[in-house]
Design a protein around this nucleic acid. Structure first.
Length: 593
RNA sequence: GGUCCCAUAGCUCAGUUGGAUAGAGCACAGGUUUUCUAAACCUGCGGCCCUUGGUUCGAAUCCAAGUGGGACUACCA
C-alpha cells in the first residue's frame, strides 16, 4: 500500500503543474496541528509567487483539484497560506486493517538492511561501582542497539572493560595495605563496592601525604608527583605490565570481584552484550599500530622518545600516541581496539561508541588518526555523544562522594514502586514472585523512561531529593495504560478479528489510527538520529491519546457489535505499539498493575 | 588563551528539513467514578523562546556578535 504522503505528493505535484504550470519536487507537508481540521497540511506560501495568486485562492483551487482528482481526499480547508487536507475514513480503515494483526508494526524485518553495526556501551573502569552516569550510558546504548535492530540492521552489542591502568592499581594497593584480607564474602559487600571502597581509601591516604609534603615546603605539583603512595602505585603498574605473578594474581582476584558485582547490576538493568572486550587484551595491539604509523610517516618520534602525531591542521593539536617510556596511553589502546574490531568482523559497516560528551575531543582525534592511517572505515565510526547527568550542585564526582550509586538508586526505586503499588492496592491474587517482578518492572520503567525521554545530546538534571515520578509523563503511566488495555481485552474474551469496513469512526479513533500510522516514520527517524527520546515521546503521545479514548468511549458495553469489535481491535493494536515502543527503550510492560 | 556544547512556563523537559495562536508533565486552584484499572480524565493559572542585529513572505528553529552556564584543551582514563 502506498503511504499517505506519497499519494498526496503526486496529486499535489500534478495539481501545481496543471493549474499553474509549476514544476517542482519541493513539496513537503506536515501533520495538521490539532486545533485545525485535517490530516496533512501543505504550506502554500512557496508557490504563490510563481502562481501569481493569493495564498487563499491558491489553497482553494489546489484543494478543489485534489478533491476532484484524488479519491482518497475527503475534504479540505484553507486558513491563510495553509491547505489542510483530510483523507477519507476508508483510507485510514484500510491502513488499520492492513497492519492491525501484525506483531511488529513499523519494524523492518530482522537483518533486512544488510548493514552490520557494532554498538559499544557501558565500558566501565574496574576500580569503582557504577553510578547514575553509567546508567545513562547503559540504558542509552542498549536502547540504540534495539532501535537499530528494529530498523533492520544486524547489531553487535559490545562492552569494552577498562580493566588495567593506574586507577586499578590504586585500589589494589590500598587493599593490600589497609584491607586486612577483606573479601566480598567476608564483608557481604558487592565486589565492585568493595573495590570502590579501597579506591576511596587510597585517595584519602594520598591526599594526606600530599598535605604533609606541602607542609614540608613542597609545591602542590611536586607533592602530587612525589607522594610515596602514588610512586608505589606506579611501580605496581610497571610490575603488572612486566607480568609479576603476585601483582597479576591480586589484579585478577579483585577484577573478578568487580565483574561479579557488575554482572548483578547489568542483570538488574536488563541489558546484555554479545561480546566483551578487555583492555588488558587489547593494549598491546595499539603498540603495533604505533609502529605501523611510524612506518607510514603518519607519526613521528620526538626527542625524548615519545611518539606523536601533528593534527594542528585539523585544529586538534599535537597528540601523543605513545609515552617516552614506551607504555601506551588511552588513545593507543583505542586505535588498536578499533582496528581489531574491524578485522574480527570484516563486514562491519559501522562502529558506534556510546561515550559521554566530555570525550568529544578524544573521538575527533581518534577518528582523524584512523583516517590518516588509511582506514576508510574511520568515516563509519560514530561517537554517540551524550550529555552528563548533573546534580543540583553540579557534576557528580566519585572522589567527593557526590555520585548517585546505581545499585542504591535501583534499590530505592524498587522500594518506591512497592510502596506505591501497595498503596493503590490493585494486585489481589498476585503471588510473591509476581509482586517482586512487578515492582522491579515498574521501578525500572520509571528510571529508564526518566533517562531516555530527554534528548541524549543534552545534559540532564537529577535531583536525589525528589524521587522519580510515577505519574504524568513517566514510564509507569505508559505501563499502566498498557495494563488497562490488557484488562479490557481479558474481559472481552473471544472476539472477531476480521476486517473492519462499514463502521463510522469517531474523531479520537481516527486520531489513534493516525498515531499508529506515524510510528513507522518515528522509528526510522529515531534510528537515523540514535535518539530513543523520539520513541519515548511518541509512545507518550499515543498513550495519552488512548487514555482519552478509554475515558470518553465505551468499549465492552458498546451495543453495535462491529463497533465493539473495532474498538477491541484498536485497543489491542495500540497495546502492541505501546509494548513494542517501550521494548525499544528496554522497558517491559505488565499485563496487570 | 584556544576549541566545542548549551540557554523555551516557578521546576523538569518536548518542539523533524524555517510555517498557523510555542506544547507536555510536575507544582498550584478546581472538577470527574452506582459504568471496561482514578498510576486515569477534564478545566484553569502560568512565556521579552537569554540579548541585539541580519537573512526570509515567514525565525524558538538559520547566520553574526554579545551575555550567562558547562565541557575539553595530560606522556590520566
Amino acid at each position: 500500500m502506498n503511504n499517505a504522503q506519497d499519494i498526496l505528493f503526486k496529486s499535489i505535484q500534478q495539481g501545481l503543474s496543471e493549474l499553474y504550470s509549476i514544476s517542482t519536487t519541493n513539496i513537503s507537508f506536515q501533520k495538521t496541528r490539532k486545533e485545525f481540521e485535517g490530516d496533512f497540511t501543505l504550506v502554500t506560501f512557496p508557490y504563490i509567487k510563481d502562481a501569481k495568486k493569493s495564498p487563499e485562492i491558491l489553497g482553494q483551487e489546489l484543494g478543489n483539484y485534489l478533491q476532484q482528482n484524488n479519491a482518497q481526499v475527503k475534504s479540505f480547508n484553507v486558513v491563510k497560506g495553509f491547505l489542510n487536507i483530510s483523507l477519507n475514513d476508508s483510507f485510514w480503515l484500510n491502513y488499520f486493517n492492513a497492519v492491525k494483526n501484525k506483531s511488529n508494526i513499523g519494524y523492518k524485518a530482522p537483518n533486512s538492511s544488510g548493514r552490520k553495526v557494532m554498538v559499544e556501551y557501558s565500558s566501565p573502569n574496574t576500580n569503582k561501582p557504577l553510578h547514575l552516569g553509567h546508567v545513562r550510558n547503559i540504558v542509552l546504548g542498549y536502547s540504540v542497539a534495539q532501535l537499530l535492530a528494529a530498523n533492520g540492521h544486524e547489531v553487535i552489542k559490545t562492552n569494552l572493560v577498562n580493566d588495567r591502568g593506574i586507577h586499578i592499581c590504586k585500589s589494589m594497593l590500598a587493599w593490600q595495605k589497609f584491607g586486612n584480607g577483606e573479601t566480598p564474602q567476608s564483608t557481604g559487600l558487592k565486589g565492585d563496592h568493595l573495590v570502590g571502597k579501597y579506591y576511596v581509601v587510597f585517595d584519602k591516604a594520598y591526599k594526606a601525604e600530599i598535605e604533609t609534603l606541602v607542609k614540608e615546603g613542597k609545591t602542590k605539583e611536586e607533592a602530587e608527583k612525589q607522594a610515596p603512595l602514588i610512586l608505589e602505585a606506579q611501580k605496581m603498574l610497571q610490575q603488572w605490565e612486566a607480568g609479576n605473578p603476585e601483582v597479576v594474581g591480586l589484579w585478577k582476584t579483585m577484577n573478578n570481584w568487580v565483574y561479579d558485582g557488575f554482572a548483578i547490576t547489568y542483570k538488574e538493568l536488563g541489558v546484555d552484550f554479545n561480546k566483551t572486550y578487555y583492555e588488558s587484551d587489547m593494549y598491546l595491539l595499539g603498540k603495533e599500530v604505533v609502529q605501523d604509523g611510524l612506518n607510514k610517516n603518519v607519526f613521528y618520534k620526538k626527542e625524548n622518545g615519545s611518539v606523536a602525531i601533528d593534527l594542528t591542521k585539523e585544529k586538534l593539536d599535537e597528540k601523543i600516541v605513545l609515552r617516552a617510556d614506551g607504555t601506551s596511553v588511552y588513545i593507543t589502546q583505542d586505535l588498536g581496539t578499533a582496528i581489531a574490531r574491524f578485522r574480527e568482523f570484516n563486514s562491519l559497516n559501522q562502529l558506534i561508541y556510546t561515550v559521554g560528551n566530555e570525550q568529544d575531543f578524544h573521538f575527533k582525534v581518534l577518528f582523524s588518526i584512523l583516517e590518516k592511517l588509511g582506514y576508510d572505515w574511520a568515516r563509519e565510526c560514530y561517537h554517540l555523544s551524550y550529555g552528563m547527568v548533573e546534580l543540583p550542585e553540579g557534576k557528580m564526582k566519585s572522589r567527593e562522594g557526590t555520585v548517585v550509586d546505581a545499585d542504591d538508586l535501583l534499590k530505592g526505586m524498587f522500594e518506591t514502586a512497592k510502596a506505591t503499588t501497595e498503596e493503590l492496592g490493585k494486585v489481589e491474587g498476585f503471588t510473591q514472585t509476581e509482586l517482586e517482578n512487578l515492582y522491579h518492572l515498574v521501578s525500572l520503567g520509571a528510571l529508564k523512561y526518566f533517562i531516555l525521554k530527554v534528548d541524549p545530546k543534552k545534559k540532564m538534571l537529577f535531583d536525589p531529593k525528589e524521587s522519580i515520578d510515577f505519574n504524568g509523563h513517566t514510564g509507569p503511566f505508559i505501563q499502566y495504560t498498557h495494563a488497562r488495555i490488557k484488562s479490557v481485552l481479558r474481559k472481552a474474551g473471544e472476539y472477531s478479528t476480521s476486517e473492519i469496513e462499514t463502521i463510522q469512526v469517531n474523531d479520537i479513533e481516527r486520531e489513534l489510527i493516525k498515531s499508529v500510522y506515524d510510528f513507522e516514520a518515528v522509528l526510522e527517524e529515531a534510528g537515523q538520529n540514535y535518539s530513543p527520546a523520539l520513541i519515548a515521546n511518541y509512545v507518550y503521545e499515543l498513550t495519552k491519546l488512548y487514555n482519552r479514548f478509554y475515558h470518553d468511549v465505551t468499549i465492552l458495553k458498546e451495543e453495535n457489535q462491529r463497533l465493539k469489535e473495532f474498538r477491541l481491535q484498536l485497543s489491542k493494536c495500540c497495546a502492541g505499539v505501546i509494548a513494542n515502543g517501550m521494548n525499544l527503550l528496554g522497558i517491559a510492560v505488565p499485563e496487570r498493575m
